[in-house]
Structures are given as structure tokens and as C-alpha cells.
Design a protein around this nucleic acid. Structure first.
Length: 573
RNA sequence: CGGGGCGUAGCUCAGCCUGGCUAGAGCGCUUGGUUUGGGACCAAGAUGUCGUAGGUUCAAAUCCUAUCGCCCCGACCA
């Protein structure tokens, strides 16, 4: 490709509305342009990168025995109504109407469509298992798109769905897919790892996120320094001793604590450790009020609480609800003598972290403004519905898996996710098969996704310097950039000749044939980040030499014009 | 949805507080010339519904109101 014929609008300065490195560099290197919030044009260079990622994904999926299909982007509402998600999915689902006023949505994910296809075409255990995938544009009307291709509203995603006759078969296949995913990211030159994750609103019973470690990532991950434990902070556990089960000998006393609301204020006023305080948090859910209890030195993890309650949604109770429940201002709630139900809101459930189980002589709110209780004991003075892990992991917590290592908290970019779905969609959409005994059963499903654009963005996050992008070879839009320096006719003749040679040898080459000054061409070349540069200058050419530069290391060497093809071929393999 | 910020040339931004003649700079772009191995120089030039609508005023990029768009933080999120 000749630079002069392409469209590579590089920018000298950082665009004002880009925040993270990959977004800035994608704009500056002329890979993408924003059309509207969360939607982008893919320019020639950007599209080539996208195609590279897709190619690697296709090769690995096909190698794992998956079949590529292509499903519609505009989906009839009926399918989503059948699964129940038309009502439940919320505003993220972009809904449109056709000319006859029929409802459709722009597909944010394709469980319904694929399950509909499979239920119509597959009837027998003999035809299972199957894994069907597509690479397609998706649309999610995100509340807050950001960071360029990292979180767009319109984005390219590979999504795959597998159908099995048994959970065991799904389990086996799940491992195959997880490993295929790890291989894909490895081939993309990315350091990715599989992280245990929450299944979120998609449902299912087991999930891993495929995460590329990066400080700018939106996912927070706990990892063990000693063993291979890696989990999303949303679900990560830590090994914790349960509260000492001393006898309940203390007596409950009310103490005056004027305007002391926070754990720290009360603990220091009463001279007790925060771990002896019972932090009482009140949540509103679709199933009534939840009172969550946790030791004062720990942070509550809302994902864990949501999972523990089985609630569809959960928000912190507002001031009015807290007053109704406790009869006190916010800041003085406690588990002792709470009503079992609040008029107009619903039932009250108490759920406690394991740090509360067996706690004695504890301090907590008195449900009376400006008062706390001391000497409170679990089981005697209050009782929780259950005692489970509700705490957020912290750096330095003990690993729950090996019990030895300390947990570290790191950030990462989620580039893929795999789920064991089970029968959620096959039951809703009646995707059933006949087993060996002629018995009808719902198919067992798995689902597997990769954000294509996000993977490209993650590659830039991990590979850049002050001059621009440094593409890993497998994702690079071109293998080599050929740069002619100066207007000399010998130079341009030689460059043309080498350009033709490179192409003849199947090497992907971008030929900067522009008439610009050398400095401009070098700066653009470094910004665009093609791994190798072949530079043709007047002086060198007189000695039959060409300069070869490696973008990543800055290393340069002079090679004979005839040897450049061999050298590049060697570097490519 | 809550909080904050921004919208002036292709890009980055100044001007606005304290209204005043013809709206500016740098970069980019066009033409000519000199240059040519790390974002050159000289000269000449083109480019704007000052986001949009309404209002106040003799006079609005500037003040007021509404509205749209974009960015950030939070809530949210296969």
C-alpha cells in the first residue's frame, strides 16, 4: 500500500477528548475517528488491525472445531420477549421499530437468535455438541461509553455459543475454549490470564474473564503471589479467621454518641477496635429491605451481597427508608430489635458477613439518633438469616486457595469472557433434543465472547512509547514500512523496486512515497508503529545499502539492497 | 440518572470575567522560492452559521434563558 494513496490522517497533538493512551494513539495514528459518542469510523490502518485480530480468532476457533455463522444485527422483539429479556434488559438495549411499527432491537448479544436457530435445526443427541460463532457488530446503548474502542456503544465482537447433551461435556468444552482464548491473546502478543468472575445479568453458573493486565483497565483483580489463584475483585474471597466465639458475657448498654456516625469516629470515641464494630448497611431490593452486617474494619462487597440475596437489583437505602426502618437518623443503625417488616417497603432480612458470626461485646448503632450500643452479642441480641462471605478483598489478604500467599490487587482490561450458561436459554426458548433413550432434554449451553476492538486497544495499552504505537507483529497493520528519503530520482527508483520486491514476497508493506521532509516521515512512522522500517536514503544507496530499523528497540543496521528481503523474511518467522 | 467541565478555522487553543469598529495565535492547508536523515525557512494566500434557538442591548463570541453535542467523576455494565 502506498502511503500517498491511503488515508492516514495523523495528528501532531493529542486530541482534546481522548483520555487513555490507546484512545489517544488510535486517533493520532489515524486508525479511527469518532462519529458520535461510542461509535467510530475504522480508517484503513485501523481496519487492517481489526482484520488481523479477527484472523487470529478465526484460526483458533476453527482449530477448536467451531463453526462460523453470521446472524442478523436487527432482531425481532418476539425472540427477546420469549427469553424474558425484552423486559429485563433495560435501557442498554437499543429498540427500534420498522415501517409497520413492529418492534426490533439492535443485538447487544445473540443468545436468543442462536438458540432459535439451533432449536429449529437440531433435534437429536447425535447432532451435539456444536459450537457456533460469529464476528459481528454489536450495539449496546451504554450508560457511559469511554476510552475509544475500549468501551464503545457500537463495537465488533466475536461471540460463540456451544450446545451440549450433558454438563460434563460442557465442562470439557469450556476448558478447551478457555485455552483457545488464552492462545488467541498470546498470539496477539498480549499477556492475558483467565480470572474467575461473576456471571452478572447474563446468568449461568460459572464464568472466567480473560484479562490483559494494564493500569488503565476497568476490571479489578485479586491475584495470589504464591499460587495460581486469580479472581475478579467482584467475587474474590480471602482466607479469614471467623470471629472468636467467646461466651456472651457482656451486657448491652446504651451510650450517648452525639453526631458520631462513622466507624472511625465511634471507635476512637469509645476506644474500641473497628473490628469490634458491627457496620450496618441498609439496602433496598426488589425483594424488600436487606440489612447487611459486617465488621467495621471491612468493606462490603455489593456483588456478593446481591448474589447472597438473590435480588435482581440492589441499591443503598435512601434517608427516608432508613428512618422508617430504624426510627433514627442515618448513621445510627444496628441489628438489635429491628422490625421484621416495614410498612410500604416490605420484609426486612438480615444478612451478615462471617466476621459477625459469634461476635461478642461488639459496638453498633442503637437505632436511636445519637446513641450506640455496647456489649452486643451475635445470636443473643440479634440473629442473621445467614452468615456468609460479604467482604471485599484487600491487598495483603491471605489467599483463599493456598492459604499461604498474600493477595495483590491489580487492574486489567477484560478482553474476553467465557460462561457456563446451563439451560437458562434452552429452557426459555425450548431448545431441546432427544437423548439415547428417546427422552426430551434441554440443551446445556456455554457462551464465549471476545471484544475485537478492545483487544486491539489493549495491545496499544501494553505496547507504546512516547513516540507512538509499537505494534506486536501479529496485529501490525503492515509488517514493514518502507520510507524513501529525499527527492533524488535514484532513491525513488530504488524504493519502487524494493516495494515491488517486498510485495512479490508476500510481505505486507506500507510505502511512504510522500514528498515530505524526512523528519515528518520518521515521526509518522514511529507514531503508526509498524514493527520494521526500511529506510532508503541517498548516501546509503550509493553504496548499495538500505537502513533497517526495529521500531521496538530503535536498533538500526545497514544491509545490502539485495539482502533486505531475506532479512525481513527472517524477522517475520 | 447525579456532579463537574467544555463547545471559537482541519487540529490544539486564546479572546468571554469587565459587551464596542474588520474575531485571533500556533500547527495544518494552497501558491512561489530556498531547503532535504528526525516534525525546516522566507513570502503571499484560503479557511469561521463563535454548537443551535430565543432574549437583553444602540451594540453580543462575550450577559440571560432554553436546547443540542462532546469529555471527565460517580452510579451502571455480556
Amino acid at each position: 500500500m502506498k502511503y500517498s494513496k491511503s488515508l492516514i490522517p495523523t495528528l501532531r497533538e493529542d486530541p482534546a477528548d481522548a483520555e487513555c493512551v490507546s484512545h489517544k494513539l488510535m486517533l493520532r495514528a489515524g486508525l479511527i475517528r469518532q462519529v458520535t459518542r461510542g461509535s467510530y469510523d475504522y480508517l484503513p490502518l485501523g481496519l487492517r488491525v481489526i482484520r488481523k485480530v479477527e484472523k487470529i480468532v478465526r484460526e483458533e476457533m476453527d482449530a477448536a472445531g467451531c463453526q462460523e455463522v453470521l446472524l442478523p444485527i436487527v432482531i425481532p422483539a418476539e425472540l427477546w420477549q420469549e427469553s424474558g429479556r425484552w423486559e429485563r434488559y433495560g435501557k442498554e438495549l437499543l429498540r427500534v421499530k420498522d415501517r409497520s411499527n413492529r418492534d426490533f432491537c439492535i443485538g447487544p448479544t445473540h443468545e436468543e437468535v442462536i438458540t432459535d436457530l439451533v432449536r429449529r435445526e437440531i433435534k437429536s443427541y447425535r447432532d451435539l455438541p456444536k459450537n457456533l460463532y460469529q464476528i459481528n457488530t454489536k450495539y449496546r446503548d451504554e450508560v457511559r461509553p469511554r476510552f475509544g474502542l475500549m468501551r464503545g456503544r457500537e463495537f465488533i465482537m466475536k461471540d460463540g455459543y456451544s450446545f451440549h447433551t450433558s454438563v460434563e461435556d460442557l465442562d470439557r468444552h469450556y476448558e478447551v475454549m478457555k485455552n483457545a482464548y488464552l492462545k488467541i491473546f498470546q498470539r496477539c502478543g498480549l499477556d492475558a490470564r483467565a480470572v474467575e468472575a461473576d456471571t452478572g445479568s447474563i446468568g449461568g453458573y460459572s464464568s472466567h474473564e480473560l484479562v490483559v493486565l494494564a493500569d488503565t483497565g476497568e476490571s479489578i483483580i485479586a491475584t495470589c503471589g504464591k499460587c495460581d489463584y486469580t479472581a475478579s475483585a467482584e467475587i474474590a474471597a480471602s482466607a479469614r479467621p471467623s470471629a472468636k466465639k467467646s461466651k456472651a458475657s457482656s451486657t448491652v448498654k446504651e451510650v450517648h454518641t452525639p453526631s458520631l456516625k462513622t466507624v472511625e469516629e465511634v471507635a476512637s470515641y469509645l476506644k474500641v477496635e473497628p473490628s469490634q464494630m458491627i457496620k450496618t448497611l441498609i439496602y433496598l431490593t426488589d425483594k424488600g429491605l436487606i440489612v447487611a452486617l459486617i465488621a467495621g474494619n471491612l468493606e462490603l462487597n455489593e456483588v456478593k451481597l446481591t448474589n447472597a440475596t438473590g435480588a435482581a437489583f440492589l441499591t443503598m437505602a435512601d434517608e427516608a427508608a432508613v428512618k422508617k426502618l430504624t426510627g433514627a437518623e442515618v448513621g445510627f443503625a444496628g441489628p438489635v430489635s429491628l422490625p421484621a417488616e416495614v410498612q410500604g417497603i416490605g420484609k426486612v432480612r438480615i444478612i451478615a458477613d462471617i466476621s459477625i458470626e459469634g461476635i461478642s461485646n461488639a459496638v453498633t448503632g442503637a437505632n436511636k439518633t445519637d446513641y450506640h450500643l455496647t456489649g452486643v452479642c451475635d445470636a443473643r441480641d440479634f440473629k442473621a438469616e445467614k452468615y456468609i462471605d460479604l467482604s471485599s478483598v484487600k491487598k495483603g489478604d491471605v489467599c483463599p486457595k493456598c492459604g499461604k500467599g498474600k493477595l495483590d490487587i491489580v487492574r486489567g482490561i477484560e478482553v474476553g469472557q467465557v460462561f457456563k450458561l446451563g439451560t437458562k436459554y434452552s429452557e426459555a426458548l425450548k431448545a431441546v433434543f432427544l437423548d439415547e433413550n428417546g427422552k426430551e432434554k434441554p440443551m446445556i449451553m456455554g457462551t464465549y465472547g471476545i471484544g475485537i476492538g478492545r483487544t486491539a486497544a489493549a495491545a496499544i495499552e501494553q505496547n507504546n512509547d512516547e513516540n507512538g504505537i509499537i505494534w506486536p507483529l501479529p496485529l501490525a497493520p503492515f509488517h514493514v514500512e518502507l520510507i524513501s528519503v529525499g527527492e533524488d530520482s535514484k532513491v525513488s527508483e530504488t524504493a519502487e523496486k524494493i516495494y515491488a520486491e517486498l510485495m512479490k514476497n508476500g510481505i505486507e508493506v506500507l510505502f511512504d512515497d510522500r514528498a515530505g521532509r524526512p523528519g515528518v516521515k520518521f515521526a509518522d512512522a514511529d507514531l503508526i508503529g509498524i514493527p520494521y522500517q526500511a529506510i532508503i536514503g541517498k548516501k546509503a544507496i550509493e553504496q548499495g545499502k538500505i537502513e533497517f530499523k526495529i521500531r521496538k528497540t530503535g536498533e538500526r543496521k545497514m544491509v545490502g539492497a539485495k539482502d533486505i528481503i531475506d532479512l525481513i523474511n527472517k524477522e517475520l518467522h
